[in-house]
Amino acid sequence: MRKEDMVKLISAEGFEFVIDKDAAMVSQTINNMLTSPGSFAETQHGEVTFPEISTTILEKICKYFYWHLQFASGKETEFPIEPELTLELMMAANYLHT
């Protein structure tokens, strides 16, 4: 996998998730960050930091990105959400337009 096909998402605690760019682009917000014209740090380094999103939530969000791609390709499974994560997950989903 080429480096430019991957992006690095960094949680509030500094934990790094390296995922496919295609997956990350499911988020409208990340899509905008990575494709906006000009030389934003995000565009240049393929790296986005989320100081307000915890590691647990960011991991869940990455899983959702891949689930979304699967769904789009016709594999319609259920996406599990733990009740204790729901509220925090919603706030992140709201921010990420996901």
Binding site: I61, H68, F71, A72, E76, I81, P83, T86, A93, T98
Partner: peptide, 24 residues
């Protein structure tokens, strides 16, 4: 609802989840 064609957003999924467990 999930599983019917158009992919639900994460926000939608969370909302359905809350609806299921609203008493919690």
């Amino acid at each position: 609802q999930p599983g019917r064609g158009k992919c639900p957003s994460l926000m939608d999924l969370c909302i359905y989840k809350i609806r299921e467990d609203i008493d919690k």
